[in-house]
Design a binder for these strands. Structure first.
Lengths: 147, 147
DNA sequence: TATTGTTATACTCTATAACTATA
DNA sequence: TATAGTTATAGAGTATAACAATA
């Protein structure tokens, strides 16, 4: 009953469940997954131009305009002027936005602990090593295909 | 550098990459992920009422109407009358729809092989076992939370 | 009355193209 | 001319509510 198909299926199943759970948690904070991605990017980079976000998240500039509109409307970020380039807007987390990002990151950390803590360390190590090998294979495959 | 956070992050990363890759493959066949889910459900169940699909996929009846509209328009399924209940429409794969579903399933099988074949069997077994344990823990967590 | 599916309406994410302001 | 961001427009997925046809 074990084998490659099972291994892949279970991996994707876990990801689906974790993502659904994260979506529910985000919703209670008034966020969506896309908006949370923006907020996390700011959490790691600090205030940045919208252009930087559209490049980092690989979405259109238009899309970032909409996501930032929504985050401004719900109080997670503000648009600040760039000190020298008047074309640029610096998307800046509010106090609330920064706190929320930190809380969500902590929640993810807690989830990781709940899922993996207490297992034999060598088994978790094997798990991660297999995953790294699979990721490397996957990247090789798509690099070859995408050419 | 290893630990619960890394294990969870890598898992989600692989899922994101695989899903992006599947989306690209689906797009070349004229499908989206949601529409492919419907098609797969039909692949496994055969012709079913739309109600069955909305229950199985956990989406609204309205949403199924839209997805089936799109699949009909692109030639993957037809709507057939139910033999005895005139309220019901039986969503039925076309020849093209059935072939496409089979091809996609084969592609996923090939991907699983490419990612896991040739690894020591006991490592893949450990990988799957850890995943099963994590899935069990996750379900327990959410069962407790959702009450 | 209850169920199946559709129509009406709305929100979110996404994209491309045209445009404005600035560099 | 090139870049940053917005407006205009469109398509996909999703939801709830009201409704028609049928059971």
């Amino acid at each position: 009953m074990t084998g490659p198909d099972t291994a892949l299926d279970r991996t994707l199943e876990l990801a689906v469940l974790v993502n659904e759970d994260m979506d529910r948690a985000l919703a209670t904070d008034g966020l969506t997954r896309s908006r949370a991605h923006v907020l996390f990017e700011l959490h790691h980079r600090g205030p940045v131009p919208q252009r930087t976000l559209s490049t980092a998240l690989q979405v259109s500039a238009r899309n970032i305009t909409g996501l930032v509109d929504a985050l401004v409307a719900t109080g997670f970020v503000t648009r600040e002027p760039h000190p020298t380039d008047r074309r640029v807007v610096l998307v800046t987390p509010t106090e609330h936005g920064a706190r929320t990002a930190a809380t969500l990151a902590a929640g993810r950390h807690q989830l990781a602990s709940a899922l993996f803590d207490g297992m034999p360390a060598n088994r978790v190590a094997t798990y991660t090593e297999v995953l790294d090998e699979v990721l490397a294979r996957f990247r090789e495959l798509t690099a070859a295909t995408a050419r």
